[in-house]
Structures are given as C-alpha cells and as structure tokens.
Design a protein around this nucleic acid. Structure first.
Lengths: 248, 248
DNA sequence: CGGGGTATTGACGGATGTCAACGATGGTGG
DNA sequence: CCACCATCGTTGACATCCGTCAATACCCCG
C-alpha cells in the first residue's frame, strides 16, 4: 500500500526522489496499536517522530483541574512531534484515536536526516508551519466563536482534510470521532456538542453517523461557520492540484 | 545598543559568530512605528520577517462575526512570521501594541539565509517550535480554564517572559497591555477581565497599574493558574542561566 | 481644558455547564 | 449465538458563569 505520509508530504514540498526513498526507508513498516493508546505522554522525554500510516490520532493535554483539551487531530499521513531537543520533555500527550498503524523514525536517525538532507529539513519545517496555522485557527475558534459556529467550523476543517485523503461520495467522508473527543477538541462539553449536532441534523445540514460525516448542505454549513475559503482551501488546493513546486 | 533579537536567539541555539553577524546585518537598524499600527494584514501577501527590537506587538485575527482574537503577544527580541510561502497570503494580522522599533528582513534575503546557512535555518526552526508550544498552551487555556485561572495563567506567562527580558524588582515587570487587549487574548470580554483583575487586587495577589504588573503573591497566583513549572519555566531556564547580559 | 480611549460598576439575560437518568451500540466471552 | 458490559449517545431540569448594555469615572495627550 502506498505510504500516506510520503504521498502527503511529497505533494506539499518538492522532494527529490532520493529524499523520498530515504524518508520511506526511515519509516519502516510501522506497528499496530489499539484505539486510545498513548504513544508518548506529557512529561516523557521526547521520543521518535510518529507517523500515522493508517488510523487517526490526536494530541492532548490533561488540565490540572481534570479536564482534557485536544490540541490537534491527526489523520493518516500526518506526523507528530518535531520536538527535536528544544524541549526537555513532552508538553502534551500523543495518542491513537482509532486502531492505527504507526511508524516511528528514531530520534538519532531523524537528526541525521535533518543534518544531511536540507530538502527533508525544509519539508518538515513547512509541515510544521501548517500545524502552526491550524493551531492559531483553533485559538480563534475556541476564543471567539459560539458553540454552533465552532462545531460547524471544525466539521468544515475535518471534512476538507478527510476528503483530500479519500474522496467518497459528495458531502461525505469518514469521521471516526466520538462526540466526547469532539467536545474535548472544541472546548465544550459532550452534552452540548450533542445538542448542537442534533440541531444540525434537524435542520438538514449535516449528520454524524457511525463513523461517517454526511453533509447535506455544505454551503450553509460554511456560511454558519464563517469558514474562510482562504483558510484550509488554499492549503488543500495545492495538494489536490498537485502544484509542482510551491517554490520556497 | 545590543540587539534584543540576536541576544535572544543566540541564547537559545548555538549559532556561530559568523551566523550571528550575518543575522545582525540582515536586520538593519529598524524603523519606528506608532502604537496599534498594523505591520501586515490578514489577506496580504506574506511580507518580510519582522523583528521587534523595542516595544510590544501582537498577532491577531478579526472574526467574521466582528470580534477579535489575539493569537500571540510579542515582546522585544521576538520575531514574526516565517510564512515563507507555504501560504499564499497572511492568515492573520501583525501589529504593534506600543510604539515600537521594528526591523525587517526582506523575503529574498531571508531565503538566501535559509538556503545557505543551516545554522540559521535551525535556529528559526527551533524558535518556531517554541511558538507552537505556546500556541498549544493557549488552546488548552482558552478551551478548558475558567476566567480566573485563565487570567492568572496568562499573567504568569507574561511575567516570566517579561522578567527574562528586563528584571526590575521582585514580583514586578513591565506590562503595557490594556485590559481590552488582554480580553482579546483570553477570549473574554473587557468587562469580565476587569472584574477578575479587580478580585485579584482585592485579594492582594496582583495588580495591574499603569503599564506595570505587580505580583504580591506569585506562589498563590501560580497555584490558581495551575501553572506548570515545566511549561515556560524550562524554556526560560535555559535563557536565564545562559544569559551573560540582560538584553538591551 | 477638552476629548478619546480606557477602567470601573451594576443590573440583567442567555449560552453553556452540571447532574442524572436512560437508551443505543458494539465488542467479548461463555 | 446469545448475554453481558463498557462506552457512547440522548434528553430534561436546573445552575452559573460570562456576556451585554449602559452609565460614570479616570487619565493621558494635545
């Protein structure tokens, strides 16, 4: 099976065939983990770079008061944690959400790649920039949007990301996330997420059913979300159209 | 005058004297801007890299519904926007908060540095990792903390950052931010920030007076904030311990 | 002085959280 | 193949935190 990670990263950044081969080799076959398995925990020493080949994952933080905040959601092809030594310990946990096939690139190996392969360094750097952009958009969403808009916005984001990965029917994509996880990502309670979702369903705008997201009226959803076409759209546009080289 | 940016970045990452000289030269003398001046706006093409030599700044986003969310607060020595062309346009605005002296490194020049100087690339990359860590901690704070803890946490963060820059008396530092700006950063309303601040003052824990933050009981404040010693502490520890000369 | 932005306060309303119970669903082992 | 259990989804009643609105006081700068 083609490696989701490689195909994702090589569409975003021009990588030489050699770099691609090296990266692929560094990944290895990966290893299977059950759902909800912590790959590395807050407080641990930084570990290898994790690459999600199959299955979904997330980053999260447990708050002193007991709650949990999900910081990012990862799909096949996404990778984690470039914490190459700035920090002495992890400031959040990385876990699987669904059963997953995860490859790891050991830290020393990763260090070699960064030292010897400027192309790879740049690729990782750019991917990290995208993460930063998404993180900022989450701050804005959680800080300034009401629950309805907030849910709508996250659904738009996940929909576009998931579809770029594996187009199914129109307005439909895989979304194996529980309402509890969504709540933890949105800074809401599961109960409230449920109410919002329910209203969307009643309004015939979208529904979440057994691991699938079905959007009946995406225009309406994006309008409610105040979803900026320029936000993820542009990012994904370059993936979908396979722009030869967004020259650095 | 020593360049706050250079002293900050070179304390974090080992940079050769040559790299340091090059970076310094690339900055130039900088230019003065009034308070609340947008340096680059959401929607603009990505511009140069901005470096705050003096004065404070912030990143922010205006929401479709009209509100504003501050995404990051910048102090002297901080720099902005490595948006080296992943994105075709800025997804947020960068502005001064106080009157400021800001240097710019033009994009083409920046590109050269990144292509030719692995040490500099690495330095910027690591600084960006720190930004990512702070952004994630903001997500957690806004998403899962009540207003009191939230205000307390931001104050702890700003206090430690500001003190690393220019230690004054114990429990005191410069903080030239209006309650309106704080509210925009915290995802609260100015009215509510005021109430929280007022309670802290009445409790004899901390007060915000004419551009200065005065903390009377930092242990208590950190306890309320659930401030993780490992969070900024560790990051700043490496700065403080290595810092032969306070910046400026 | 005068004026614009900021800080402070109170009264009120509403969005979201909390608590609690029940129903649905899927996985597992007997 | 069924029964059981854990997890998740759904719903209602109620509490509260925070936002909204509005008025007044403050303070720096021209």
């Amino acid at each position: 099976m083609p490696n989701a990670f490689i195909s994702k990263i090589s569409h975003r950044v021009a990588l030489s065939p050699e770099d691609i081969a090296i990266l692929k080799a560094a990944c290895g076959p990966g290893r299977r983990y059950p759902a909800k398995h912590d790959l590395i925990r807050e407080g641990d020493d930084p570990g290898p770079v994790f690459v999600f080949l199959e299955g979904w994952g997330c980053r999260y933080k447990i708050m002193p008061e007991g709650g949990r905040q999900v910081l990012a959601i990862m799909m096949p092809g996404d990778f984690c944690d470039m914490h190459t030594s700035v920090l002495n310990e992890m400031d959040h946990t990385i876990a699987t959400v669904t059963p997953a096939l995860v490859a790891t690139i050991p830290r020393p190996r990763m260090q070699e790649l960064l030292d010897l392969r400027p192309g790879i360094t740049r690729a990782f750097w750019l991917m990290q920039l995208v993460d930063l952009g998404v993180a900022r958009s989450w701050i804005a969403s959680i800080g300034r949007r009401g629950s309805t808009e907030r849910v709508a916005h996250l659904m738009c984001e996940l929909y576009l990301r998931a579809r770029a990965l594996r187009p199914v029917e129109d307005g439909q994509c895989a979304l194996p996330l529980s309402q509890i996880l969504l709540a933890d990502a949105l800074g809401l309670t599961p109960v409230h997420v449920n109410r919002v979702l329910r209203r969307f369903k009643a309004a015939g705008i979208m529904a979440l059913r057994q691991g699938d997201l079905v959007i009946s009226d995406i225009a309406q959803l994006m309008r409610i979300a105040g979803f900026d076409d320029a936000y993820l759209q542009r990012r994904l546009a370059s993936e979908e159209s396979q722009m030869p080289t967004p020259a650095l």
